[in-house]
Design a binder for these strands. Structure first.
Lengths: 158, 158
DNA sequence: TTTAATCGGCACTAGTTTAGTGCTCTTTTC
DNA sequence: GAAAAGAGCACTAAACTAGTGCCGATTAAA
């Protein structure tokens, strides 16, 4: 039912936490790394799943990782340069909405039977674009700013 | 990954088809019923699943049904009075986005461990509202109008 | 140089959801 | 009464999700 996965939830929790840490730091200070373990100690989430999410975020270019003792993760950019669309895309792939409405205009996994006569392909593709635009317009910064006016979240939408 | 179910796809196909039939009819004419079989003969979709979808739409108050020979379904209102939000809600329940972010502000299935310290509950609830607003703003009429300007779909968003 | 913390990759299990089908009952027209 | 159509219940198989286990690679520190 249009639901995000747990992995995405955990990833978002970690990212928002990192963004809050960044906001509390003086602007000139370099971001310090924080380990998956440290985040897992703060929030009662399955640590392995959290690590899984962080790994995906690193592969998606949203986090930078440092290995070894004292290693960990940090945001690869400032929080206002990271969009929710990017995050969700890294954690569970771009939203497809329907099996046939992939991002490329063409069909999907082996071809859809209905496609030649399908009356909803085009409208659903437009709808998918609308959702995507919504996600692209929300920054990690906006997510982390708890005092933000709700409508402010979607200011970049129209 | 933010995907609609097949049942929803089939339901949407049927609804868009009915809306197109309605558009081709003179305004004063009463809508004729069309059977699940007849729709299934037009579009190559599993007929039973289609029937399942139509049943849900009837229960959701979007379609009216007539039983018996010559029975079938028809739209309970004109296509511009039916929102995509209603349709999706009837076919697969309202979009929840996350397990904890139900429509009622309170928690969900048995209580979330993270909730007391969760940094994303509020922002995700706002995001869910945004998606929901998007869905509410798209009418069946707009979905059925294939020549519509893509941006026209989302005119009711901002 | 050894140890321990940390990320990185592969694989596995159990539970839930989704897709699709079968059967029977009720209603209604012919 | 026969046939067409919706309504309801239950079932199976496949796919996806959540979560865990294990081990290798890297690196700072003792």
């Amino acid at each position: 039912m249009l639901r995000l996965t747990k992995r995405t939830e955990y990833g978002l929790i970690a990212l928002v936490h990192m963004a809050e840490l960044a906001a509390a730091r003086p602007a000139e200070a370099e971001a310090e790394v924080i380990s998956a373990r440290a985040i897992g100690d703060i929030f009662p989430v399955p640590k392995r799943m959290l690590a899984e999410a962080l790994k995906h975020l690193q592969q998606g270019g949203i986090l930078e990782s440092t290995r070894g003792v004292r290693g960990g993760y940090r945001l690869s950019r400032s929080a206002d340069q990271i969009s929710l669309g990017e995050i969700v895309s890294a954690l569970e792939g771009p939203p497809t909405l329907t099996s046939c409405a992939g991002l490329g205009a063409a069909s999907a996994d082996g071809g859809c039977e209905v496609e030649p006569v399908c009356p909803i392909r085009s409208p659903l593709a437009r709808l998918r674009t609308g959702i995507w635009t919504l996600f692209e317009g929300v920054t990690l910064q906006a997510l982390a700013d708890r005092s933000a006016d709700p409508t402010g979240l979607f200011s970049a939408t129209g």
